[in-house]
């Protein structure tokens, strides 16, 4: 054993933590803050949210302009509300793809880079991480979703007003489209988070989620059987978009609250599967 040359005192490692160790416990608010830092400190998430808002505003403007130019004569009040609803929430149909990708990446990105090992070493009970991620993702996506749908309403309304089509934001149906659209985006993101936890791969997770949102409805429509047609209203995207005034006249005829329950069911299923596997598997 050789003797070690000690570093000068000024350079000696300062190892002691100034604050008392007993206050530095793992607590849920801390885990929430940690996940919030993670979400906002990646360029990919910031860009995805920006894209979500921008395509919403762009699509709303495009759709409102197209509708306004095709309208001739006086539109009945009820139809006016329906048009405003569509303009406000139509961007959600595209925005859900961005929310889905975001949800998958929020966890699969950690598995892909190895970050998950740092995360689970600092929170070895593991599940609080998944709950914190869900809450942070839900809240952020809901807020950004609200900016998108309210923004879509604000951009679309003046264009539609030129053709004498108008409905106030406070109209219950318009409010449902605006708030419901944001809620749906947030729930899709959390659903995708659950899938990403199960699959642990960005590419695989995105494929599964987009398959469920985009391909499953088409496949069921192609099957010439009653059971297939009966299942369509219970699909994630059909139930989610059905209440927003986009998919008009769904055959199953679910009430909006039932549609919300269907979406929640999908979210609970994917998060539960993710939680069970996250707890059980080696990281």
């Amino acid at each position: 054993m050789t003797t070690e040359t000690l570093k000068p005192a000024s350079q000696a490692p300062r190892l002691r933590m100034p604050s008392a160790a007993s206050t530095n416990r793992v607590r849920f608010p801390g885990i929430l803050r940690s996940e919030a830092i993670k979400l906002r400190s990646l360029r990919s998430t910031v860009w995805s949210y920006a894209v979500l808002v921008l395509i919403s505003l762009g699509l709303a403007a495009l759709m409102a302009a197209t509708l306004a130019s095709s309208i001739e004569g006086q539109v009945p009040a009820e139809a006016q509300t329906a048009i405003v609803m569509q303009v406000s929430s139509f961007p959600v149909a595209l925005g859900q793809l961005v929310a889905a990708v975001l949800g998958v990446l929020f966890i699969a990105g950690e598995y892909g880079t190895g970050m998950i090992r740092s995360t689970l070493s600092s929170v070895p009970r593991r599940l609080p991480v998944l709950w914190a991620k869900s809450l942070v993702l839900f809240a952020t996506t809901f807020l950004v979703g609200l900016v998108s749908t309210v923004g879509a309403y604000l951009i679309g309304s003046p264009l539609l007003a030129a053709s004498d089509v108008a409905a106030p934001l406070t109209d219950p149906d318009v409010l449902r489209a605006v708030v419901g659209g944001a809620l749906y985006l947030a729930l899709i993101a959390v659903f995708a988070l659950g899938v990403g936890t199960v699959v642990r791969s960005s590419a695989g997770g995105i494929a599964v989620v987009l398959g469920i949102i985009l391909i499953l409805p088409t496949v069921l429509q192609l099957i010439p059987a009653d059971w297939a047609a009966n299942m369509i209203p219970y699909l994630l995207s059909d139930a989610g978009l059905g209440g927003l005034g986009i998919e008009s006249g769904t055959p199953g005829g679910l009430e909006p609250w039932q549609q919300l329950l269907v979406v929640l069911g999908w979210v609970v299923a994917s998060l539960s599967a993710g939680a069970i596997l996250m707890k059980r598997r080696d990281a």
Binding site: T23, V26, R27, I31, K38, S44, G114, M115, S118, V123
Partner: peptide
């Protein structure tokens, strides 16, 4: 390599520290 490559070193440490309110 147990670090997200898209995040800065400081934010990586801040996120880990936050779990323990460090």
């Amino acid at each position: 390599k147990a670090v997200h490559t898209g995040r800065s070193a400081e934010n990586h440490l801040l996120a880990l520290a936050a779990t323990h309110s460090i």
